[in-house]
Each structure stands twice: as C-alpha cells, then as structure tokens.
Design a protein around this nucleic acid. Structure first.
Lengths: 336, 336
DNA sequence: TGTCATAACTTAATCGTTTTCGTAGTTTCA
DNA sequence: TGAAACTACGAAAACGATTAAGTTATGACA
C-alpha cells in the first residue's frame, strides 16, 4: 500500500532518492539510505511489480505452456516433475512462473501469444504440447525468448530427453536378458515418438532382432485403456512377444492389468517395460524396468537456458541440448 | 508493442477514445469503435496488463502457495489434481495463477506476504502447508482475499475434504468386511490428521472395535520409508493387526512393500487401505481400497469462493465448506 | 584564489492505461 | 425559438516506479 511517495514525504527527500536508496545505487549517502530503509520497513513498503514492469519493460515473469493430448494438466507425472525443477531454478533468479491460459473453449480468449504479450512475460517455456498448433507456432516464431522441451525448432533453444539413447539402452538391456520377440506399443505420432521408434528399429537391426510389423502398435501416452486393448491384441497373436515396451510407465499399467486378467504373471510369463521412471513406479511391484528420464536436469537446464536467453541474448547460444536418461533395472523383465 | 497512443495517432482520435472504444464503453460512436478495433487488430495491439493493473489496482492474478513436508512440490498427486481443477476454474473468470515463491533458502527473499503484495495478487490460495509457519499466518491475517484448503481459520474461507466422514466410511467398510484388529498409521500432526484420528477413535468405539495403543502409529504423509518401517513394527507385534490404514495411497506403497518382502500376500494374509484415491492407485494391483477425495470439486469450489471473495467481498459469506469423498472398494481388504 | 572533480541529491519525463470532468455540436420538445 | 438533454469525443491527471540530466555544496589541488 505504501509507495515511494509516502516514504519520500516522511523522509523529506525526493521520490527518486528513495527509489535509488532502496535499489542501492551508489549516488546516495549511506546514512540517507539507512534512514530510508528504516522508514520503508516501518511502513511495510513493498515495491509494485506492475509499476516497475511498466517502466523497465521487465516483469520477471515466465509463461508456462503445457497441454498434452490426454489433458492431464498438472497431474502429468513427467511434466509436473520437469516443471517443479524448472520452477525452483527460475525462482533462484528472481522469476515467477505463470501459466499461459490454455482452455480453448472461452469466447473471446486470447491466443497464446496475445496472452504472453498481455502479461509481458520475459520468456516462455513450452512442453509436451502439440507443436503443429498454429498458435504454438506463432508463439515460437515471435520475438519472445522461448525454450521448448521435448521438441526442437531450428532456431530456438530446445531441451530434449535422449529418446534415441534411452530406447537403445532399454532394448539392449532387454536383449541381453535373452529376449528376441519384443513388441513396442508406442505413443501417438510426435517428434518424441518418431525418435524412439526409429531408435527401436535401428537398435533391433543392429542386435539382429527381427521385428514383425504386428509387434509395432500405436496407442497413446498416458492412456491405460488403449494399452489395455492393444496388449490384448498382442497376446492374441499366434506368435506373441515375450516382452512388451509401453509408451510410458503410466500407460504400462493398462497393459499390466490386461496381462494379469488373463492369469499371466510378470515377469514369469511375459515381460514388460515402461518409460519415464515416474516416482510411483519406483515403489510398486513388480518394480518396473524403465528408462528414467532426468526430469530434474531437464527442468533445470531449460530454466538456465531461458534465463540466459532473457538476460544475455547476445551471448546465448541457440542450441539443442539432450539430457540422457538411464535404464532402471526393475523386476518386470525376465532373464530367459 | 503497439500502444493505445500508436492507435490514437493513426486513427486521429485521443488516447482516451481508443481506450474506451476497445473497452466497449457506450459513449463512443459505433463507426469510430469499428475503425479503432480494425486498426488495433492491424497493429497487433495487445493491452499491457502491468499498466492496466497499475491504474485499476487489479491484476487478475492469483497467488498459489503450496508446500508440503515432503517438499514434493508440483509432483504431489493430490495437490496437483486440486490445483489443476482450481486453475481451470479461475481461468474461466479471466484470472491467471502464479506461484508464490516458497524456497526459503534465498538470501534477501521476500516473505509470502511481501511477494504477494509485490505481485499485487487479487487473491491467494493456500494448500497443504504448515499453517503454524508465522509467514503463513501473516499472509492469512492480511487484507488479501484468501481461501485455504484442508485447514480452517476462523474468519477465512476454507475448503476441506471431509476427513471425518472419510475415515468413518472407510472404517465402517473395513469393519463390515469382518476386521476387528485394525491399525492406523497416520500422518504427521496437523488439522487433517487430528480430524482423521479422532474420527477413527470415535467410529471404532461406536462399532465396538477395540484399539490398542500400539496399533496407532505416527508416520508421515507421502513418506514410503517411514511407513515401510512402521509396518514392520506392526507386523512384529505379538498380536498383529489384520488390516492397516495408511496416511495416504502413496505412503501405502511403502507398507505394501514391507508386507511383500515378508512373503505375505495382500489381501489374503493382511489387508491394507489408503487415502486420497490418487490416479495411479486406480490402475494398480491390488487395487487399493481407499477414500477418494473429490479433488475436482475441492479445486473448483475453492476457486469459485476466491473469485467471489475478490469480486463481491460484501456479499460473500465467510464459510467453511466440506467436500465429501467416497470410499472406493478395491481389492486390498479381505472379507474374513 | 580560482578551477575542477566529486558526492549527494532533485527535477522532470516517461512507461501504457483508465477515468473523471469537460465541451462542442446536435436533437428534442414545449 | 430557446432551453434542456443527448451524443461523441478530448484534456488531463493519476497509478508507482525508474533514470537521464541537471544542480548544489564540499573538498582538492595547483
């Protein structure tokens, strides 16, 4: 409530002096500063970020855009972990995060870019979204500093999980366990999916593992119903796989349920593997063999890159950064 | 980038006219409005929320404060579900949410209240936090509209899950399955814990279920290690329980692992129940018997109350609202 | 002693909006 | 026909902060 003007009146100095004193400029006397700080504290003064932003054109606000096909919102295990790390990191630099409004139903809503301009975000981070959406493209191509997660644009900074390496490692591990009939239920088409899928084929070929077409099935990320269904289809094949890879850990639960409903046991009768390494999967039986994505690192690196891009645009390299995950050996893949 | 001034120059009218035209005031001619709107669109005009906030003293921003003892941040299943619902609801009313900085390690950080004033939040929502923290109290007692979740203050709006009814229903169900040696591993002391615990004792007494002191143990919410340990203690008792209640679903996983390590089966050898009804628990085996909290409703009601408090302070009742959950019958409690 | 640098302020403009209070010009109506 | 009422717009002040440029007073130095 108290403003610089209030303090200036009490202290008998100009508003400018108060501003400079509180911002610790060098051209204000030490005792004056002390006095002003004391009065400011007494009045419970708190700066007004709106006024400051208006003048300095910096809000210290970062916009977060996240939409996944399943509309999980904040309940998305992988994203919420990345975001939490991102948040903690930018907060260290004095930034706050605000969500870019993504409900497309409102009449008279703003586009992502309009919303970002309205709020004056210093930068935005995009994750898990439909990167073909014209509104997303518009935002990415704008002059607002942007970092994308899990999708790359030519001339923008992007942080991706090492999907190629992840699938490679996972497949190598499964192969080393003695499996050669390996199915892959993958997620809906996207850059991530493409990378994982081609890594799957490539690695399989290198290992000499044959991949029949009917072993490759499309489902969707975080969709337990689809994986439940597709798993049943795979199990009904005349020559069913001995191991099934799922789009992610959560989606794997759907497959696991399908398997168990048939009275089959994991991994005795069939092996399964997930992807992500979500927290919950670490505490469950059978402990899921999966690729743990380094969400902490992804969020942190994305944050540092974005802050750097905002504060030192000239000296910030526009690069694509890959964060490697690691294969987590659970108990869901049998050695045969 | 374009401002009202830019538009006013091109249109040959005053800035005031442009402002009023774009805000659809009645004292501007229809054709003038049309023209101004057209030019605004051509220039890609977007209002500046900072300037608007400075003048109107309304940011349409809502602060979110959330800290739990396990520092789960956004990865907290229960909270993230509530928050997601809260977010969707306030967005419908034109508000955006921003996190109140909660990392207490920074030198020179702002208190929760200072941060809220700095950002000029129109209101704040508090959840799952340590309500004894002086900073939290300071924020709650301030003049900023506030809604608390899962904790009640006398003269503030609060939305709580019906913990008393939840535990009652759960215990009644378990009792109806034939159990009478029921242990309760509860969370760390808090209002929520107190309610659940007293409901447990009350219901047990009404049902004629005896509760030895050694059946009531303290662990912590979302802490699988503690529940793992305490579960072992319970199982080592000369007269172990036939059913164990856990602080929440996630914490239950720790107990489940302890049980399984002893070669015991759920629910054949021992029954367990959780609390929360988190998404993941719906897809797991054994499907956990639990109390599903209505996170959708909690978030939505909290949001509506807060918006009402902001926009119609006089006519908004300061009330405590209880949202009831429901017992979800899984397969983790045996009928004996 | 006069000049000049330095320290410690102040003045005033500005950021982009909103809003109150005018003020012309036009219409209505007795 | 003249007063009253409208219509459509403009002038200007404010919101709270920052900052470039200007202004004193003081001390240093040749």
């Amino acid at each position: 409530m108290a403003s610089l003007k209030d303090i200036s009146k009490i202290c008998g100095v100009s508003v400018a002096t108060v501003s400079k004193a509180l911002n610790n400029h060098t051209d204000i006397g030490e005792e004056t500063k002390e006095y002003i700080r004391k009065v400011a504290k007494e009045l419970g003064y708190s700066p007004n970020s709106s006024a400051r932003a208006l003048k300095t054109r910096r809000t210290y606000g970062i916009g977060v855009l996240f939409v996944d096909e399943a509309m999980s919102g904040l309940t998305h295990d992988y994203f919420s972990a990345v975001l939490d790390s991102f948040k903690r990191t930018v907060e260290k630099f004095g930034y706050d995060i605000t969500f870019i409004n993504c409900c497309k139903e409102r009449e008279n809503r703003m586009s992502y870019l309009e919303h970002s301009r309205y709020r004056g975000f210093d930068g935005v981070v995009l994750a898990c979204i439909d990167f073909h959406d014209p509104e997303v493209i518009e935002l990415v191509q704008s002059d607002i500093p942007v970092v994308t997660i899990d999708h790359l644009f030519n001339d923008r900074i992007g942080v991706v999980s090492d999907n190629v390496g992840g699938i490679r490692g996972l497949l190598e591990y499964i192969h080393s366990c003695g499996h050669s009939r390996i199915a892959y239920i993958h997620g809906a088409p996207s850059a991530v999916t493409t990378n994982r899928l081609s890594s799957f084929y490539q690695t399989a070929e290198r290992l000499g593992v044959e991949v029949p077409d009917e072993y490759i099935r499309e489902a969707a990320y975080r969709d337990t119903h689809k994986t439940y269904q597709v798993t049943n289809e795979l199990l009904d094949l005349p020559d069913p796989p001995t191991c099934i890879l799922y789009p992610d850990d959560f989606a794997a639960f759907g497959g696991i349920n399908a398997i168990r409903e048939r009275g089959l046991h994991i991994p005795a009768d069939i092996s399964v593997a997930g992807y992500d390494g979500i927290r919950t999967a670490r505490h469950l039986e059978p402990k899921l063999t999966t690729v743990r994505q380094d969400t902490e690192q992804i969020g942190c690196v994305a944050a540092r890159q974005l802050v750097s891009l905002i504060e030192r645009p000239k000296s910030t390299l526009i690069e694509h950064i890959t964060i490697s995950g690691r294969v987590v050996e659970g108990r869901s893949v049998a050695r045969i």
